[in-house]
């Protein structure tokens, strides 16, 4: 019990952030129309790629002679970058197509005239 209380008081700010972010996350997603579900999932996927920051810190702190840490850290940086870059590019590609459809009804009207 003592341990739990001290954990909460030590990490007060973090716990507040966690709770508030849970509500923000739910609030933000609640209004997304079904048509945007796939890009949304993909976009959220890219955002959790923020884990790359941890990978960079691990890599940057690894002692020069600790090869397992260097290799694992290197791998983590590659995988994290894949997540971030791939995620954002895929999302952009999907959304690009959504943007494209905006023109078509007007074009059709023009064509029919």
């Amino acid at each position: 019990m003592e341990a739990i209380l001290s954990f909460i008081s030590q990490h007060q700010q973090m716990i507040y952030i966690v709770i508030l972010m849970i509500f923000v996350g739910i609030e933000v997603i609640g209004h997304v129309p079904a048509v945007l579900h796939t890009p949304l999932m993909s976009g959220a996927n890219a955002i959790h790629g923020v884990v790359i920051i941890g990978a960079i810190i691990v890599m940057g702190q690894a002692p020069k002679d600790n090869y397992p840490a260097l290799v694992l850290g290197f791998l983590a940086v590659i995988l994290g970058t894949l997540n971030v870059v791939g995620g954002f590019v895929v999302t952009d590609r999907m959304l690009e197509m959504f943007g494209g459809k905006r023109k078509s009804p007007k074009e059709e009207i023009r064509n029919s005239k």
Binding site: G25, I26, N45, I47, I53
Partner: peptide, 13 residues
Amino acid sequence: AMLTGGILVGAAG
């Protein structure tokens, strides 16, 4: 940044 990003996606997902 990692905490907000992660929890945001965790909750939204």
